[in-house]
């Protein structure tokens, strides 16, 4: 199963929601579309689903042109943030809905529903109505409903955003396992970069209707293509080239960056040497598993992270070291 998107464009009046987006994804990939709100990721997902028509561009699945095929003929499964279970149907009826639409006979639908109830471990709730379920349970039912009719593609629109932190991590694992078992090409929209990093085989980071960078989670985190991606994917220290040349030449590692480039150094790649000199601790935040330390050095301010509780106090003098290979160079824009 291969999804090929080429040059999709969509404008609402003067606002350009999608500005010529292209990418390809192949089963069993898990693709996360990531970006701040208004970047076009949801529009893109809805376009793949067939709920929004593109102004131009093409959408192919296994070289079958789906651009003008309505949503109901695409055979995709979709899960929304708001659960979106049919309130007038039981859990079992919700799960079997797509099968009944397809015209499966009652017995087959029943067997398939039982199977899926078993997968999402909610067999005992088959006859409940959606409002009798917790958020996490509702979303599992929505997931079962989406995969019941063996979709060619699974689309997830911020499926975890409405859930509590604990339920969210559990369901995250569940979704990933299910997707792997089914070998199902899955596309998920999220604004949570941690979610994208943990779930995805490929991350498509979007900005203002275009793709800022697409690649493996590691690519985006370790080798951001531009300043936007570096900024968006977790915390990073952005150090202008002149500052590096003046105060931290070791970061160059034989590199010759172009003019106006910026060094992107992750906080965990900065090592603070207590008792050393060259920088002053401004503040220390204890976050549980790590401590985040704000330091002042001649090149400005930096954020460093250390595992556990840092044995540093504000005002302490520290030495500064950069882990080798921890610096990525990004262009100015």
């Amino acid at each position: 199963m291969q999804l090929e998107i080429s040059n999709l464009r969509k404008a609402y009046g003067a606002t350009v929601a999608l500005d010529g987006v292209s990418f390809t994804a192949t089963a069993p990939q898990f693709v996360c579309m990531l970006g701040p709100s208004g970047c076009g990721k949801t529009t893109l997902l809805r376009m793949i689903a067939g709920l929004v028509a593109p102004d131009s561009g093409r959408l192919l699945l296994n070289s079958e042109d789906l651009t003008r095929v309505p949503a109901r003929r695409r055979g995709f499964g979709i899960v929304f943030q708001s659960y979106s279970l049919f309130p007038n149907m039981t859990v079992a009826e919700n799960i079997g809905y797509g099968l009944r639409i397809r015209g499966d006979e009652a017995q087959r639908v029943r067997i398939r529903v039982l199977e899926l109830l078993d997968v999402i471990r909610l067999s005992e709730l088959a006859d409940r109505y959606p409002w009798q379920l917790s958020g996490g349970q509702q979303q599992r039912v929505a997931l079962a409903r989406a995969i019941a009719a063996e979709p060619r593609l699974l689309l997830l629109d911020e499926p975890l955003s409405a859930l509590d932190a604990k339920v969210r991590t559990d369901l995250r694992t569940e979704i990933r396992n299910l997707q792997q078992q089914l070998g199902l090409l899955t596309i998920m929209v999220t604004h949570d970069q941690e979610e994208a990093l943990t779930l995805a085989d490929r991350v498509v980071c979007m900005r203002q209707g275009s793709i800022a960078q697409a690649g493996s989670p590691e690519d985006l985190y370790r080798r951001p293509a531009n300043r936007f991606v570096a900024d968006f994917m977790g915390l990073s220290n952005m150090i202008p080239l002149e500052t590096v040349q003046k105060f931290a030449a070791q970061l160059l590692e034989g590199h010759v960056p172009s003019d106006g480039a910026t060094a992107c150094v992750r906080p965990e790649d900065i090592v603070l040497v207590s008792g050393g000199a060259g920088a002053t601790v401004k503040s220390v935040q204890f976050l549980g598993n790590i401590s985040r330390v704000q330091v002042a050095w001649p090149g400005g301010e930096l954020v460093a992270e250390q595992p556990g509780m840092a044995a540093l106090a504000a005002g302490a003098n520290v030495g500064l070291a950069f882990k080798p290979g921890g610096c990525a160079w990004v262009s100015a824009s």
Binding site: A49, A71, R72, F76, I78, S82, S84, G98
Partner: peptide, 13 residues
């Protein structure tokens, strides 16, 4: 909710 009608559409309705 629009999402309900959209879900139904994606399920083939």
């Amino acid at each position: 909710p629009a999402a309900l009608e959209e879900t139904a559409a994606c399920l083939g309705a």
